[in-house]
């Protein structure tokens, strides 16, 4: 059973997300070129490279989870550029508020961290279920995380359930009409394309599961 998550594991999560956006960057940008401005992959690669540069010393100096996540949020805000800057930035800034000074998070604290982040995205982007946004991957992911904990699984099991549910949520954005963001200008022409924000959000939750699995 994985009982608690250290700040070092949170850094591994970010590192794993950085690797994922590098690996999937072309795919994310392709999704974005269909219904957006063709920069989502490039923006997240630039943002996560900047994040890993900024937090490189964080593990050795043993900052709190809140310090780490706040630094991540501010770095994304200043380096991403597109709408994903303020959205992912707000996700991590709110997540930082939820974790505060903690240096180790139990499963409930991880869920609270993710939920605060999602609430931040909702407050910032006013997205609702079915608007074809990041929300459509994150919300079912977090619901699955909570259900898994309730049914007795550990934080790794919950993160894996969240990653699976987020991937399903991502795929379910394909037939939707975009109601938020640049894609909403396309109206019905956005149908038939997976939302790039939902795709990168699914990667974020998959990266968490991968980091927890590696931490044992």
């Amino acid at each position: 059973m994985t009982e608690s998550v250290s700040v070092a594991t949170l850094v591994d999560w970010l590192s794993s997300f950085r690797d994922a956006v590098h690996e999937q960057g072309t795919y994310l940008t392709e999704l974005d070129s269909a219904i957006g401005d063709a920069d989502h992959g490039a923006n997240l690669i630039r943002g996560m490279d900047a994040v890993m540069g900024a937090v490189a010393g964080e593990v050795s100096t043993v900052g709190s989870a809140g310090d780490l996540l706040k630094k991540v949020g501010m770095t994304l805000v200043t380096s991403v550029g597109g709408a994903s800057g303020p959205l992912y930035g707000t996700f991590f800034l709110r997540a930082a508020t939820a974790t505060g000074d903690a240096t180790s998070l139990d499963a409930a604290a991880v869920l609270a961290m993710l939920r605060a982040g999602l609430e931040g995205i909702v407050a910032r982007g006013k997205a609702e279920a079915g608007d074809k946004t990041m929300y459509d991957a994150l919300a079912p992911g977090l619901d699955a995380f909570a259900s898994a904990l309730e049914s007795g699984r550990d934080v790794l099991g919950a993160a894996e359930a969240a990653a699976d549910a987020a991937a399903d949520g991502r795929d379910a954005t394909e037939p939707l009409i975009a109601l938020k963001g640049r894609a909403s200008y396309l109206g019905e022409r956005s149908v038939g394309h997976i939302d790039p924000g939902a795709a990168s959000s699914a990667l974020l939750l998959r990266a968490l599961a991968d980091a927890l699995a590696a931490a044992g």
Binding site: M74, V77, T78, V80, G81, G85, P86
Partner: peptide, 12 residues
């Protein structure tokens, strides 16, 4: 602008 291209930056 942001990061030398199109974009916006909340700190700016």
């Amino acid at each position: 602008g942001a990061a030398g291209g199109f974009g916006t930056d909340a700190t700016e």
